[in-house]
Design a protein around this nucleic acid. Sequence first.
RNA 1: AGGCGUGUAGCUCAGUGGGAGAGCACUACCCUGACACGGUAGUGGUCAAGAGUUCAAAUCUCUUCACGCCUACCA
Length: 892
Amino acid sequence: MSQSPEHIEKSFDHLVAEGRIYKLWEAQDAFRADPDGPGEPFVIVIPPPNVTGSLHMGHALDVTLQDILVRYHRMMGFNTLWVPGTDHAGIATQAVVERYLEGQGTSRLKLGREAFLERVWQWKEEFGGRIIGQLKRLGASCDWSRERFTMDPGLSRAVREVFVSLYEEGLIYRGDYVVNWCPRCHTAISDIEVEHEERDDLLYHIRYDGVDGGRSLTVATTRPETLFGDVAVAINPSDPRYPKEGELRVRLPLTDRVIPLVRDPYVDLEFGTGALKVTPAHDINDFNIALRHGLPMVECIDKDGLLTEAAGPYRGLGVDEARVRVAQDLGAQGLLEKTEPLRHKVGVCYRCRTVIEPLLSLQWFVRTKGLAEAASGSVRDGRVAFVPKTWERTFFDWMGNIRDWCISRQLWWGHRIPAWYCHSCGKTIVSREDPDKCPDCGADAPERDPDVLDTWFSSALWPFSTLGFPEKTKELGRYYPTTVLVTGFDIIFFWVARMMMMGLKVMGDVPFRTVCLHPLVRDAQGRKMSKSKGNVIDPLSIIDRHGSDPFRFALASQAGSARDLKISDERVAGYSRFVNKLWNAARFTLSHLENLDPGSPASAPGLPGRWIRSRANGCAREVAEAISGFHFDRAADSVYHFIRDEFCDWFLELAKPLLYGEDKAQAQSARMDLLKVFGKTLALLHPVMPFVTEELWGKLPGAPGNGRLLMLSPFPVFEPSEHDPDAERDIGFLMDTVRAVRQARGDFGVPPGAKVSPVVATADPLAKGLIEAHAPLLLKLMGAQKLDVTDDPAAVKPGDAAEAILPWGKVWTPLSGQIDLKQEKARLDKEGDKLSKDIAAAEAKLSNQGYLSKAPADVVEETRDRLAAMRARLEGVRHSQGLVARVLGDMG
RNA sequence: AGGCGUGUAGCUCAGUGGGAGAGCACUACCCUGACACGGUAGUGGUCAAGAGUUCAAAUCUCUUCACGCCUACCA
C-alpha cells in the first residue's frame, strides 16, 4: 500500500487552493439566500466598510466571526442570509479624493460641485471593489448578489423617505446652535465625533475693569482670543466673593464694549477665580447661559478659524496667533494679572485631529430623546440582547443622557438634504419629490440646501434599507428583523444605537435580536494599531504568508469576553502548523481509503472506533453550544483539542495495528471509522477553517460528500446513539497504562530503542481483560516487548521498577540497569510531599463537621474517593522510597 | 468627576463557590512506516494586596494598589 498517495500534495498550498475553492463556492451559488426557501431565517447584515477603505484587522475579526455564525447556521439548515455592502463614508472619502486632486494640481472648489462628485464616483468605481475582494480572501460567504452601497438609488430613496417622514413628524428640525466645527474639514460634526485629547495650556487671569467706579472682575480662561465674543461675565449666585445682588457692568478689554454681570448656578466656585467670561457663540455652556439670561450672541471666529470683524484690529488672525497677541496686549495694559499652567482636555476632530472650534451655526438635528427611550425600552424588555450583557448598562447610561443629533454636514459627498428654501417667501420645503416652485407663494426655483447628511444617518437605516425599504419587499417580510449584529464595542453609539432608534421608529420593530460585541484588535503589546505608531499588521499580508484558515482560527480562538484581542504573527503561524497537522492526518486517512469498498465485510466497531465516534459526538455538542452562545474561543479550542489530542495522537495510533493487521474485517471496520470520523471532523472545523476543510472534503471517497460541498452539508449534531461512556472509560484504562510506562521511560531516560517489560497489577477484572485484549497495541505504543497483567493481591513491585499508582491499579516498569536511583528518589520524594499535603488537606476537610453536614453528598463522596486513592498512592510511594533507600544505603 | 473593565505560569489568556488550566515559549530525549510545520515526557503559579461572608473563595462582598477604556458642561 502506498504511504504517500500520489493524489494528495505534501502540504496545503493555501495561496493556490483558497482562490480556487472560493471560485468553486461561487460557481455553485452556495452563498445565495432564497426568501422562498425553507428554514427558520438566520440573517446578518455586515457592518459596511468604507467604500474606499482597505481591509484592516477590525474588519477581519468582524467578518470572521460573522462567517463562522453564518456557515454554522447554513449547515444547520437555517434559511441563511448575509447581506454585504459598503458605506460611502462622507468625510473620509471626500478627504481622500481631495488629497488626490491636490496631487493633480486641482481642487474641489476649482472643479465645482458637480464635477467633483463625478470624480468621487469615478474614484469609487475604481477602488470601491477592492475591499470586497479582500473580504472574499477571508472566506466571507456573503450573498454577493445582494451587495449594497449606501448611495445606491434604492438606499438613497430610503434615506429620503425617512428624512421626510421624520421631518413631517417634527423629529427633524433646523436651528441655530453651537456645533462642533472642524476648520480643516470645513464641516460640522456630531458630539460623538469629537475626541478629547489632553493638552498643556495656560490659564489666563484677565481683569475686566468696572464701569463708573464699580468693582472689577477677574476671569480665568484658556482662550483669551474669544473675549471679543463675550457678552457677560457670570458668577455663581452663592459665591461669597461677589455681591449677591445688584447690577454690575464691566468694560470688555481691548474694546469699547460694556458687558453685564450675570449670576448662574452653572459656574463652578472652585475653578479659577469663580468668574466666567460668557462667550455664547463659541461655547455650548455659555450658549445655554446666554439663553437663560436673554443675552445676545456675538460671533468672533469664522468657519476658517479666523477672527471676525468683531475682533476689530485682530480680524483675520488665526486663533493661535490671536491668543498670543491678545495676551501680549492685555499684559501691556496691565490687565493680565497672571497665567498659570493648566492641563486639560480639548476637543479634536476624530478624522483629522484638528482642534474643534465650537461655532454658532444653522444646522439640521434629529430630536433623539423619544427615540432613545424606545431603544432603551427594547433592551429592557428583552427584544434586543447584548452579548456580553455588561454593555447594556453602558448603553442605558448613554441613551439616558443623549443630546440631539446634528445630522447636517457641510460636504458634497453624501445624501443631499431634501430641503429647499423659497427665496421669495422664505418657506422651507421638505419633500419626497424635488419641487420646481414654492407651494406657498408659487415662486420659481426654490434653492436646495447645499448640505449633505451625516454618513451615520444612512448607516442607521442599513438593516432595512438593504432589504428593499421603502418598498414592501418579500425580503423585508422574511428577513427583518435580522438575527444578529456583530461589531466592535467602539461603535455602539455611532451605529448600533442609531440603528435601534431608526428601526423602532421606521419599521416599528428592532433591527436585530442580538448584538454580539467583540474585542478590539491590538498589537502583541496591547497597543491600538495606528499608522503613526507603525504597528499596523496588514491582514492581507498575514493571509498571504500563512493562509486565511489559521488567521481566522487565531482570531476566533481569542474572541472571548476580553476587551482586547492581541494578534501576532507567531500566533497565526502556530495555527498554520495545526493546518499542516490536519493535512497530514488527511494524507494518512486517505492513504487507507484508497480503493475503499464500502460493501466489503467489516467486523463490528472495535473499542478505538467506538471511542473516537463518541468523542467526535461530544465535540459536536461542544462546538454547537459554543457557537450558539457566541463563545467563538470555546468552539475553536474544542475542535483543536479533539483533532490534535484525540484524533491524531490517540485514534490514529490505535487504529494503525488494525489497519496494517492481517484481519481484513477488522481493517475494514477501522477504515470505515476513519472515513466517518474524519468527515465529521472536517464538518466540525469548517465554520472556522472553511478552505482547508472544503479542500479535504473534496478528496474523501464515497459516502460522506456525495459530491456535495462541505459548506452545504449538514453540521454534525449530537446523536445519543453515538454517545458511548463505556468506550471512553475503557480507553481510559489503556491510556493510563501507556502514559504510566512512557512517564517511567521519560523520567529515567530509557533510550527509545530499549524495550521494557511492564507489569500491570489490578484487581479490576474489566481493566485486566481490556489490557490483555489490547496487549499487542499497547506494546507498540509503549515500546515494550512484553506486558504482564496480574490480579494477584500478593504481587509486589520488582525492586528495580518505577511504579505508577492509578485509581484502578498499579503499573510497574522494571528498569534493570537503566534506572538512576538518585533520580528515582528525588521523584519519589517530590511526589510523596505533594501527596502528603493533599491528603492532609482532604483529611482536614473530612473531619470538619460543618463540611460533612453542609456540603452536597456527592462532593463529600468525591473527596472520600480521592482521599482513598491518594492514600493508596502514598503507600506505594513510601514502599518504593524504602526500597530505594535500602539500595542506596547498600551502595553506601 | 463619574462609569466600565482588567490584574491567574516567562508571554497571551480561559476558568466565576468544592482537586490551579490551555496555547505559545522553555528543558530533556527521539527523524518510530501521516506529519521534525512532528513525537514523548517534563520544568514553571502566595490566582495583585488586605479584610469579610461560607463547612469551603482564583471565583461572592468590602477596602486598597496598579493599568486600561468610555462618558462628562471646570472655563
